[in-house]
Amino acid sequence: MQTNPVVEVKNLTKIFNSLKAVDNISFEMHPGEILGLLGPNGAGKTTTLQMLLALTIPTSGEIKIFGLDLEQNREKILHDVNFSSSYVAMPYSLTVMENLMVFARLYGVHNPQTRIAQLLNDFEAEDVKDKAVRSLSSGQITRVCLIKALLNDPKILFLDEPTASLDPDIADKTRRLLKKVKEEKGMSILYTSHNMREMEEMSDRIIFLDKGTIIAMGRPEEVQAHFKGESLEDVFLKIARRE
């Protein structure tokens, strides 16, 4: 069944001084889809993500989310979107519960305590709820950030290397949980990671970026076949090493 895309990007370009970080890219993301954004360092993944989160203004092109222009409808769109990154923290002096309550209020979550309790349970993080964030391990902080990202039951979740600092067990549980949430809620996820096996496992489709342009887009096996690689990692290495 063809559905309206939740994200539509048309001819998106971002130039910093004379550097083209993102060069005329176009893609769509559909409801319930996990879209992997892949590419070597400097490929334009982060800049693309920042533009989709309205943190950075594009030089040209169009971003529509839920059919609405992002710049004109920032507040409305961001209410139904969330974000998590291994590289973004939370106030260290506050406890996990205090932090989550702040973000629940920020997103206007109804019955925040019930919602937080449910997510703490899902992520096996009840034992850290009264601890200050500064006392947590990086893996625990990453899990708390993911809980924060799910507080508002987002229709689109942007994840920047969400499992980068998790041990294999928790990373696996996190991936399963994200897939479960996606299945149950029909949530769309835009995902960046340098873990190629994770990308293959998680992504319905992959966008391969290099030097700001899309060099391949499709299902993981299609991208792999396109570059005649044995695996996504093989493809990644070929592109990164310009072979």
Partner: peptide, 9 residues
């Protein structure tokens, strides 16, 4: 934390 704040509405 600014990023968390400014990706919120």
């Amino acid at each position: 934390n600014l990023l968390n704040i400014f990706v919120s509405p």
